[in-house]
Amino acid sequence: MPIQWSEQYEVGDPRTDSQHRNLFDYANQIEQLIEQARAGRLDRQAVEHLFVFLDAYVNTHFAYEELCMALRGCKVAQKNKEAHNKFLEFWTEFNRQHTPQSISTAALENLHATLAGWLTQHICKVDVALRSTV
């Protein structure tokens, strides 16, 4: 089931909100990749594009968001950085174990579940603290 963006996820910083919406879109694309994999017709080029996006995202978005929180004196800045580091550890290990050419349906399901949980939990419990600083 697609993860729907809603106002509850908005943090009040247009760039951060745009980046979060983009991540929601990619999480939903993983669902499509899972269906393709189950049908035996996985688009490996789309998986490669996903990996490239996630690599860039965890580096650029996390850095930007951490900077925003630090500059605005956000009370959860350290908690946010720790959560980002934990996700980076997951992504690094996932990347070590899987490639776009060899990824399994189960690995895509794991990635989707992790990302969906991250989106709904991290944004709603940590990132929204930016609202009070905007």
Rank of each mutant, 00 (worst) to 15 (best):
I123T: 04
N28I: 01
S104W: 00
A116H: 08
G12Y: 07
A46V: 01
D43C: 11
L111T: 10
V126N: 06
Y57K: 06
G117K: 00
D13R: 10
I103T: 12
A107P: 02
E109V: 12
A106P: 00
P2C: 02
K86L: 14
L108Q: 14
L50Y: 00
Q4F: 02
A56I: 09
L119R: 06
L115Q: 02
A46P: 06
T92Q: 11
L33S: 01
A46H: 06
L119S: 06
H20T: 10
D17T: 07
R44I: 01
G117S: 05
N28L: 00
T99R: 03
P100Q: 04
L88K: 14
A46Q: 14
E82S: 06
D43P: 04
T120W: 07
I34K: 12
P2L: 04
V134Q: 09
I123S: 05
P2M: 02
V128T: 15
F90K: 06
A46N: 01
S132Q: 14
I30W: 02
E93A: 14
F87M: 12
Y64C: 02
R15N: 08
S132N: 07
C74G: 05
F90A: 08
K86N: 09
H98I: 02
H20V: 06
R15A: 13
S104K: 00
F94N: 10
T99A: 11
K75R: 14
L71G: 01
R44P: 01
Q97G: 03
R38E: 14
L33R: 04
G73S: 06
Q97W: 03
K86A: 15
E82T: 03
E35H: 14
G117D: 13
F87R: 03
C68R: 13
H112I: 00
R38F: 06
W118Y: 14
R44K: 15
W91S: 00
D13L: 13
F51N: 05
E65I: 04
Q101M: 06
K79E: 15
D25A: 08
Q32E: 15
L119T: 07
L108R: 12
D127R: 07
